[in-house]
Write a protein that binds this DNA or RNA. Structure first.
Lengths: 249, 249
DNA sequence: GCTATCTAATTGCATATGCAAATGGCAAGC
DNA sequence: GCTTGCCATTTGCATATGCAATTAGATAGC
């Protein structure tokens, strides 16, 4: 449980006070300055530090709690929440967890791994500059021994310290990145493609067999972090989302 | 601009007052009792009607506005918002609009249409009872003359008055339903499949060619409304979503 | 009729106040 | 040591009050 630095909360004078407080704390959370578990100063402390009334501070904190950024409990105080990975269609799923939730045994192989510059094709496909240093990976995930999904991943070395030394022997890159990097925005694209020859061989399916392709890119404060291409074989896989007319339920 | 019935707002005594007010108004909105454009009573009226303070009423309304259910403007008052269809991955897109946004000419053909009971296969696939009366449709949507998407739809007649008389000559069923029915929940599932022979012929692609399959079911207060199966040919189509670690951005 | 101005309705925001509810931790008693 | 009960801290909720900002509609002036 880390200490918070009270004076890290700075208002910018733009807009309503409650919203300035909200944004100030939100930025500290999403930037990683206050990692999950950090205790947020109590309302009275913020109130004095910022010269606002308790109700104004309260309003900001209640809103942040509603957004899931912080968790508040009487007497214990307020702490930064751990980002949940539970949005089904709008999330970054952990492949090991997915497989294990299906009651199957998870395993994976790192097929290849290299540090260097992206090839033009990869740079184009993942929206990177040719000058960026990247780690490039191919990983095959298996469920009960059967090929589950083929992962091609590019990691922007500058955004993820230590990635060049990591060999991903114990943790697959997706999960490793969730622990060792921050992201503030992601983009999914889902499409259907036919398997290429090399892909078909690895996934043990016929060439041209329909596959669900998930391409995802993530950024941290507008800097690219990683891009991944997940190829799920056949009609066995589906992405499900539930929602209402005014947004998610 | 319809009138609101002030006494339609009823508290249930469960939980905080601001939340009772919030839920009471939310229910009136999502149930359709207060359709879009309806003016919500001003804070003072609700305050007197409910015996709560203005700030408590205010808190409920501010929250509803934040959720997008209502729109508030000084002096003009508060009105019920129109449900937006802009969530990209989590929405019910209008196919004509989608096509026209691509700058292509939209057209469609109703390939078949029938009223009756669902076949066992359809009942199973769409989660309906065999005894439900349904309208069954096959529609081909075209963009610039080319096949764009093949739609198979089942509409639960009891949930949509007038569907048995409608021939969908002027408006495709998806758009017609958005105007003539209410829904409170929907479920998407996206997967990749190979085209069957009949589907391939209609879409002008080869048998087995990968297609993106979107299956969607919608309910209104737990009663099924419609189920649809949208088959998008080939890798031309993609579903895109943007989000952050704490939810949508 | 047209325009500029004023008025009043309505929401937006902040504060001060008070009490309720939950609970971590201490102290007393066994 | 263990349990019980109390106290202080922190958040949750509701109210009352006051002023600011916005703007629809009325009014006055031309």
């Amino acid at each position: 449980m880390a200490e918070t630095q009270l004076d890290a909360v700075k208002l910018d004078g733009a807009g309503p006070i409650y919203d300035q407080i909200r944004r100030a704390i939100r930025d500290l959370v999403v930037s990683g300055a206050w990692p999950p578990g950090t205790s947020v100063p109590p309302e009275h402390a913020l109130m004095e530090q910022l010269g606002a009334s308790r109700m104004t501070v309260h309003r900001a904190l209640v809103q942040l709690a509603g957004e899931g950024l912080i968790i508040r409990r009487r007497r214990s105080g307020t702490i930064v929440a751990s980002p949940p990975a539970s949005h089904a269609m709008l999330d970054i799923p952990s492949i090991p967890e997915e497989v294990e939730q299906l009651g199957q045994a998870y395993a994976y192989d790192v097929l290849s791994r290299s540090n260097g510059r992206p090839t033009p094709e990869i740079a184009e496909r993942f929206g990177l500059k040719r000058s960026d240093k990247v780690t490039h990976l191919m990983v095959l995930h298996r469920a009960d021994g059967k090929s589950h999904v083929l992962e091609e991943r590019v990691i922007h070395a500058a955004a993820v310290p230590g990635v060049a030394q990591e060999d991903f022997a114990r943790t697959p890159p997706g999960d490793w990145l969730l622990q060792h990097s921050l992201w503030s925005q992601a983009e999914h694209a889902i499409s259907a493609v036919g398997a290429q020859a090399d892909e078909a061989e690895l996934l043990h399916i016929a060439v041209g067999e329909p596959c669900l392709l998930v391409e995802r890119r993530t950024w941290n404060q507008d800097r690219p972090v990683t891009a991944v291409r997940l190829l799920y074989p056949g009609p066995r896989h589906r992405f499900v989302g539930r929602f209402g007319p005014y947004g998610q339920v």
